[in-house]
Design a protein around this nucleic acid. Structure first.
Length: 599
RNA sequence: CGGAGCGUAGCUCAGCUUGGUAGAGCACCAGCUUUGGGAGCUGGCUGUCGCAGGUUCGAAUCCUGUCGCUCCGACCA
């Protein structure tokens, strides 16, 4: 390819729309352009890099035994209602209407379509296992798209769906994908690592996310360097001890706390109650009902864990008014001591716009964090503004409906497996594998007949890779002050030939043409910078775009019968013109070996 | 959804407070010079000042509305 034949609109200055480095580089290097918020155009160079990643994904998926299909981006809402995700995923589901006012769903993933297809087409255990995958445009109605390709409304994703005869077989399929993912990201030059993850709106039994460490990542990962434990903070647990029990038997006692409405304030004079002896009371509205959450004063609620326990994704913190109408006090004086709840629950003010909080019996569900189990001598709000209780015993004074792990792990807590201190760092989620079980098989009747003629449900798994996000993650991880440093495997072109004189009859240009032809013939992606620009401009652009190898042909070295070969970010070497092609091939091998070196 | 900020040339931005014929740098075009790390000089092209209303003799500038973009928040009572 010749530079002047394609379009590489590099920018000297980063556009104001870009905040993080990889986004700036995507724009500056002329890889993408924004068409609308969260919606991007891939320019020729960006598309080439994207295709390289897609090809790696294809090769590894094929190698793992998956088969490629292509499913529609627009899907009938009925199947989404059938799976239940029309409701549970409604916040992210993109919906459009056609001219006949018929509604369509723009697919964020394709469990519904593929499971329906499997139900129709797979009838016998002889046809299993199967793993279908596709690489296609996906849609999410993001509340707030940001960071370029990181969180976009429209993006490219590889999604795969496995069907197996048994739980054990499904676990094997899961493991195959897990291994394939590790290879895929390694081949893309990414230092990605798997972490235990929450299953979110996809549902399922367990899952792992593949994470690329990056300060700009939107996920937090808890990990243990000693034993290798790693989990998304939404899922992570630790070996932190439960709250120590204190004097048994002290009677519960109300005391005045005028103006004290925060955990922090209660720790100070005159109350002086340490945060770890306080019970924090939170109120959420889940499926239009109030749910009380109790966690220790010095802990923080983990909403993802909470969401996983209550069985609905439709929830939000209650407003101060809702809280007052259901508990009789404002935030800051809340508690779950049984007598203060019974007093309120059965009757409710007339004309209330908010549905009465609580279950049929009138008592709200009370979910408590495991760390509070058995705690006594605690302090909590009295459901009366300006008053708290002390000497509260979890068991004696509070009727906890369910105990769960609801708190968020913090750095330094002991690892649950080995006891060493946990660390936390930010990361970009580039892949996610789920063991789904039979959740979707049941909804769509994906059954088959086993050897004995019995009807059984397929056991499923699903597996996603954010292809466009992976592209940006590569840039986020591979760059320096001058621009991108592409791994060989993903580079739009591996070699950039830079003649400093581009006059057609010049010796430099003739040699450039010859080397371009020879390298192309050897199967190397190569671009010839035939622009009539000053050397500085061409070098700056080559660095910005990040070609792994630059081959410069200037008068000075040409006079010595040499050309210059320089790996991006590495040392320049002069070689005789006659050996230039071999030298480049050797350098390609060397870089390839370095890229593939153990992480 | 709440809050804040910003919309002026392809890009980065000034001008707005105090209303009076639209600006700079880079980019682009032409010419000359230059030619190994984003060159210099001369000349030139480039605008729905986001959009719609309003105030005014006159609006990029003031007012209202609206759309878009960016950031923060939407657990920690």
């Amino acid at each position: 390819m010749r530079w002047t034949k394609t379009l590489i609109p590099t920018l000297r200055e980063p556009p104001a729309e870009a905040e993080i480095l990889s986004h700036k580089l995507l724009l500056r290097a002329g890889l993408i352009r924004k068409v609308a918020g969260g919606v991007y155009l891939f320019l020729p160079l960006g598309l080439r890099a994207l295709h390289k990643i897609e090809q790696i994904v294809r090769e590894e998926m094929d190698r793992a035994g998956a088969i490629e299909v292509l499913m529609p981006a627009m899907q009938p809402p009925e199947i989404w209602q059938q799976s239940g995700r029309y409701e549970t995923a409604r916040d992210v589901l993109f919906k459009v209407k056609d001219s006949g006012n018929r509604e369509w769903v723009l697919s964020p993933t394709a469990e519904e379509v593929i499971t329906g297809t499997a139900a129709a087409e797979i009838n016998s255990y002889r046809q299993l296992p199967k793993n279908f995958y596709q690489i296609s445009v996906k849609f999410r109605d993001e509340i707030r798209p940001r960071f370029g390709l990181m969180r976009a409304r429209e993006f490219i994703m590889k999604d795969a769906y496995s069907f197996d005869v048994s739980d054990e077989a499904a676990t094997a399929s899961y493991q195959k994908m897990y291994d394939a993912y590790a290879r895929i990201f390694e081949r893309c030059g990414l230092k990605a690592f798997p972490v235990e993850a929450d299953t979110g709106v996809i549902g399922g039994k367990f899952s792992h996310e593949f994470m690329v460490p990056a300060e700009t990542g939107e996920n937090e990962v808890v990990f243990c360097e000693a034993c290798g434990y790693a989990a998304n903070i939404e899922k992570a647990t630790s070996g932190i001890p439960k709250t120590a029990a204190r004097e048994i038997g002290a009677a519960i006692e109300k005391f005045a706390t005028p103006g004290v409405v925060t955990i922090e304030a209660l720790t100070k004079e005159p109350c002086k109650v340490p945060a770890n002896r306080q019970i924090k009371t939170l109120v959420y509205i889940a499926d239009s009902k109030a749910v009380i959450i109790l966690i220790r004063g010095d802990d923080q609620l983990n909403e993802a864990k909470f969401a996983g326990k209550i069985g609905t994704t439709v929830f939000r913190p209650a407003s101060a008014e809702e809280i007052f109408s259901s508990l009789g006090a404002h935030p800051g004086s809340l508690g779950a001591v049984a007598e203060t709840l019974q007093r309120r629950s059965p009757t409710r003010p007339e004309g209330q716009t908010t549905p009465p909080a609580g279950s049929e019996t009138g008592a709200p569900r009370i979910l408590a964090d495991e760390r509070l189990r058995g705690a006594n001598g605690m302090t909590t709000g009295a459901n009366e503004d300006g008053f708290h209780f002390r000497h509260v015993s979890m068991e004696r004074d509070i009727k906890v409906t369910e105990w769960f792990d609801l708190r968020t792990v913090t750095a330094g807590e002991p690892c649950a497996k080995c006891g060493k201190p946990l660390k936390i760092r930010r990361a970009i989620e580039v892949g996610h594998v789920f063991k789904l079980g039979t959740k979707y098989s049941e909804k769509f009747g994906a059954e088959f007949l086993d050897e004995s003629g019995a009807r059984r449900l397929s056991v499923m798994g699903c597996y996603g890779i954010g292809v466009t996000r992976t592209l940006q993650a590569v840039i986020e991880q591979c760059n320096d002050k001058d621009g991108i440093i592409w791994p060989l495997s993903v580079a739009p072109y591996r070699v950039c030939i830079t003649p400093l004189n581009v006059a057609p009859e010049s010796e430099a240009m003739k040699l450039a043409e010859k080397l371009h032809a020879e390298l192309s013939a050897r199967g190397v992606d190569v671009i010839l910078d035939d622009r009539d620009e000053r050397p500085g401009v061409k070098f700056k652009d080559a660095d910005l775009v990040g070609f792994p190898i630059r081959l410069a042909i200037g008068e000075k070295s040409l006079a010595k019968g040499e050309v210059e070969i320089k790996p991006r970010g590495g040392a320049l070497q002069s070689v005789k013109t006659g050996t230039a092609v071999e030298a480049v091939m050797k350098l390609v091998s060397k870089i390839a070996a370095a890229d593939a070196s153990p992480l």
